[in-house]
Design a protein around this nucleic acid. Structure first.
Lengths: 241, 241
DNA sequence: CTAACATTTTTCCAACTGGTCAAAATTCTG
DNA sequence: CAGAATTTTGACCAGTTGGAAAAATGTTAG
């Protein structure tokens, strides 16, 4: 359908308005950025939500602003009014994400009992894979591409946290409370096994088939992983359940 | 540097050649496609190699033909002479990949001893992560995007193979040779833990740091995973080593 | 109400995208 | 070597991309 807009091509005798700003606000002469308006907060949230959807599915380069704008239900220039560049949106998503992402590990308590702590950690991670699969995929996408926009955070924040928790694990091992294993690879294997259920969800569901691929798969996975990390595959005779 | 090509802009008095074919060959009037020439085989390999590099890093949508052509060291139209569409290249890579990808699991022998068989499977998978990280990432990229171009193969070939091997594992469990675990999630966890070292390589290296992030990380991983799948984290008293 | 600011839309653009085409260059093959 | 077939190239194209500019429309404090 052609746009058929007439666009006031006729004579316009109304008093000419002074060209009003038209630029972006976000700061007056004083230099201090003024607080976001209600609309700004709302729209930014809508955009970030839409961007998460698109970025997590196609990666940074594969995602387009038009696509994000469409999912967000607004025009591209309107979107660009809130985030002047594509990278900006992505950066915001990623840095927001990393905080959420580290939380479960952060909660692992050095003063708790090792097995319940580790089991809880696995559960929390698995719940995140279930409840925030897009965030997981966004993260995975970034990793696959060599983490160009996130590498410093990985090398500093993430590494520091893992170093700290590795020491916790080592202490538990020294006390003979858990088997002596490489704590770094232990953490890697928890990440890998849990995030797998978000990142490779299609595969998991396809392989499990309709019968077992339903929502129950997360409970099955939780139970399996618990057993794996506790006992591995060595059969233990005389075990109830 | 500007190309400075003169390109014979002068008068050309040479006898005008009849416009010769110029089209693509790949079949004559008989309809049967003739075998590939040496150049065709070579160039296709170069292109596929370059495409693997680019697709594995940016995913299908994020990769561009120009990029692939540049990595392959040829012009875009030249590349398109061998693969008339972008999708064609990707499809070839993916279907090639899946064969390689399934091989390690295929080798798991129902008549072998469970633990050596499983351990070998883990090792082979880990070696693939080490030696073919781009293939792993290509696969992961496809999965993250919902496997649009591969889903049927997953649902048929992959599922059938996993079903078959799940039965093997179940038989071993029935014989009491390994602990009773969900065989599907067992396979998932082997995939996840091993592929992690290819797909999240940046993260792994960043977290391990320069000291432990070298090539030795794969040996460490292999040893750790062996222990994990064998015994889990339960400490076992009186164990040599 | 209205001026000042905030938001949205329209229009536009240059670079890039996947892909075509014919001519030119090169490589077989007898 | 000639002629045919194959391979490579340069010019080009239409659609998409990220983004700029400015005009049009809303909103709100005084």
């Amino acid at each position: 359908m052609p746009p058929t807009k007439v666009k006031s091509a006729e004579i316009d005798t109304s008093p000419k308005r002074q060209p009003r700003s038209g630029g972006k606000p976000k700061g007056d002469a004083t230099g201090k950025p003024r607080p976001l308006t209600r609309i700004q907060r709302e729209k930014q949230d809508i955009i970030l939500e839409a961007a998460l959807e698109v970025f997590s599915l196609h990666g940074f380069r594969g995602a387009t602003i038009d696509q994000i704008a469409e999912v967000a239900g607004m025009s591209k220039p309107n979107l660009l009014y809130y985030f002047p560049r594509k990278e900006e949106i992505h950066r915001r998503l990623i840095s927001q994400l990393l905080v959420t992402w580290l939380a479960p590990l952060q909660e692992m308590d050095a003063n708790g009992d090792p097995f319940p702590e580790i089991r809880s950690y696995i559960r929390r991670k698995l719940e995140m894979a279930r409840d925030f699969p897009r965030e997981s995929r966004l993260f995975a996408n970034e990793m696959l591409q060599g983490a160009p926009r996130i590498i410093e955070m990985i090398e500093v924040d993430l590494k520091n946290l893992v170093d700290e928790k590795a020491r916790v694990l080592l202490a538990w091992m020294d006390q003979g409370k858990i088997a002596r294993r490489d704590p770094y690879h232990l953490i890697f294997s928890i990440w890998a096994t849990t995030q797998h259920y978000a990142d490779f969800d299609v595969q998991v569901r396809a392989v499990l088939g309709p019968a077992r691929g339903g929502e129950g798969r997360f409970e099955d996975a939780a139970h399996y992983l618990e057993q794996l990390f506790l006992y591995g595959l060595t059969p233990r005779p005389n075990l109830k359940s």
